[in-house]
Design a protein around this nucleic acid. Sequence first.
DNA 1: TGTGGTACTAACAAAAATGTAAGTATGGGA
DNA 2: TCCCATACTTACATTTTTGTTAGTACCACA
Lengths: 122, 122
Amino acid sequence: MGQIKKTSTNYENRQILDSECDEIYAANLIGGRWTIAICCYLADGKLRFSQLRKRMPNITERMLTLHLRKMEANRLVKRTVYAEVPPRVEYELTESGQQLMPILDQLRSWGRKHKQKTQTYS
Amino acid sequence: MGQIKKTSTNYENRQILDSECDEIYAANLIGGRWTIAICCYLADGKLRFSQLRKRMPNITERMLTLHLRKMEANRLVKRTVYAEVPPRVEYELTESGQQLMPILDQLRSWGRKHKQKTQTYS
DNA sequence: TGTGGTACTAACAAAAATGTAAGTATGGGA
DNA sequence: TCCCATACTTACATTTTTGTTAGTACCACA
C-alpha cells in the first residue's frame, strides 16, 4: 500500500521470494492487516463498501479502500460500480478468493490449537 | 520486530483481530518476510544457524536472528545451544511448526494456480 | 438554497518491518 | 601472540504499512 520503491533491497527480496516460493507469494496476498477479515465477511456473499465498514468498526475508510483496491488488483475480489446517486459499489470474492476459504479454515483450526497450547505452557 | 508501542491504534487493532480471529492470529505468526522460508528449510530436519544462512543467500544475519527469535517465542521452532567453541546452535521445528507444513503445501498449490491465472489474464 | 448519504481521495503523521555496517566473546590452532 | 570460525548484538538508516484528519462529487429531496 502506498508507494513502493522498486530499487530497494526490501523490494528485491520480496520479489525473489515471491517468484521462487508459491506459498510465500500466497501468504503475501493475504498478509495485509485487514485482508483476511474482509475475505471472511465476503465469504457469505456480496457486500457494499458501507456494509463492510459496519462489520469492521475499527477499520478506517482509507484502510478499507486501500485493502479492497489491493485485493482487486490481486484478483481476490471483484468490484462492481453502479451508476447511481448516491453511489453504490459492491464487492465479492472471485473464484480464486473463494478457493482460499478452505485454507483459511485450516489456518483457523491450527491457530486455535496453537493458541491454546501456548497459553497453557506460558 | 524491533520495538512495539503498546498504546498505538495499530497495536490495538492487531490485538483485537488476533484475539477474535484464529486465522488472522495464525497468519500473523507466519507473516514475516523470511518466516515461511525458514519453516520450509527446517521441514527436513535440524539446521545450524550457519546452514540456514547458506540456504538463504539474501537474508542478513540480523534478519535471520530476529526471525528465529520471534519464531522461538511463538513456539514454531526450538533452539538448542551446545556449549562448544566455536558455538553451535541448532534449530528445529516444534510439533506445532510441523503441523503447519500441510497448510503451507496447500498455500503453495493455491499460489501456483493463482499465479498462473493472473499471468494469463493480464 | 441547503442538507444528506455514499464511496471515496489527499496530505500528512506515526509505527513497524527490514536492511546496513560494524563490533562482540570464546578458545583452539599456527 | 595473533588469527580464525561461529553465532550472535548494537546503532543507525531506509522502506513499508498503518492511522488521522479533512476534504471531494454527485444528485435527490426538503
